[in-house]
Design a protein around this nucleic acid. Sequence first.
DNA 1: AGTGCCGGGAG
DNA 2: CTCCCGGCACT
Length: 492
Amino acid sequence: MSTGKRLAKRSILGTRVSVPLEDGLYYPGVIRATKADERNQENIYCVQLENKENREFLFHELIGPGFQSIFRVKLKKGQRVFVTYKGREVAGLVDHHRPNLDQVMITVEPSSPNPHVTKPTLLKKKLEEVRLLESRKSARLQDLDTDYSRLAEGQFEIRRRPPSLTIEVPTLQSGRKRRPSSTDDGDVMNDCSAAMVLMSLSCSPKSPRRSDSGLYAYSWTSSTSSGFQEWDSPRSDTRTATPSPPSPLVVMETVTSGQVSDEGIEMDETVGFMEEPLSEKRKTRTLFQCTWPGCGKQYYLCEDVEKHVRMRHLRRSKTQISDLSDDHEEEFYYTEIEIDHHPTPPPASPEGSTDSVLLSPELANIYTSSAPTLSHLDMVKPPHENPEYREPQKEREQSITSLTNPVTISNFQPILHWQPHPYAVSAPSDMALSPKYLRLSPKSFSPTIKGSPTHRKGRSEIRKCRKVYGMENKEQWCTQCRWKKACSRFVS
DNA sequence: AGTGCCGGGAG
DNA sequence: CTCCCGGCACT
């Protein structure tokens, strides 16, 4: 039953974003104007900083709803961030960010307006729980706070989960308590401008790689002539000979247990962080896989894969390696993967002794991207199969469709559902998630992934937020979907 | 059983 | 209004 109606779109102007300044830190600002840069096929955004200064940025530099995801960023020490602590937002400074562990250590000072912060507190958060922008809270959220105030004296905050962006699953569904996601205020922008904006990304994915830091983790391009290595994918029927961004793939299923670590550092010590639920529930084996395009080497040990990335792909000499102890750039180029009951051959040994790749990149990709369940691959359906998908932003269409090599998306497509790991949610998958972008190259979405058993027509092919983003990324759903209303994003 | 979303209730 | 969800149609 389709209402056939779409929500009105809102102007991108006024959108709050985070922008990188010279010190490598991100600062809040508001988009005041945009202009097209034809040569780059990329919009230029004029952003007004808090000090009223206006600066210009390219799309890919902006972090915010509809723009780049925070997952793309490696947070620097001293970065001001916002997290939810015991039901209320607090501001803190990043102490250390370990992308590979999806771990951000944040110091929160008692000066924070959050009454729960009575002493300097070190919080361990997952990146997805970290916001660069302060939330504008609804009254409801505040109400929730009072509840917490009453309850928080004891251990209740453990039972009543602190709000978080974390992918929530059934527990939150019960009762009528609002999911107090503080991203809510960004949702409008998500819905309204993501398509346009992500599209813009798709046009110029040539993110400049900053040499000084890992601010831009990815340096990739959609052009086959980019000099990037190519996947030597056997899926020859599609144009998969595509340079793929070093797409850090995901494996970890949504794990929300990290939340409880809101208690601060003491508690953090006692809280199993991520690995526990998975390894317990399933007989899985954790491997570390290089996500550099065309590589896919796997190692048992984290340090091995880091070494591999540094030396082989980042081309750093040993002396450099020692210099870069705080750089951690290599962390962007590998991911943990878990293999379910899979007769995997023994992983490669550390760099140097053998270079054999355990799995072909493609195979590895599949495992990685869909380790939780291969069967979900069949959910990933090309947008063109949604006959009624409409374009909100006509004016962008031309430049987009002129993209010669949109195939890249197909490489990301499989990861879509498995975003829990922040690095998998970064730009590439955002692009793929964008309806606009999806429409670009329908052919590239042909179900080349094996293990897609169904090709049934009809309802199952309707792309709705739940299907596209999955339950675990409910915060990315359009508002309508979250309210169990007719989807406004994938209109059908 | 899973999904989409209407209709309607709570606040 | 916003947010949430029971329940039904549909697959």
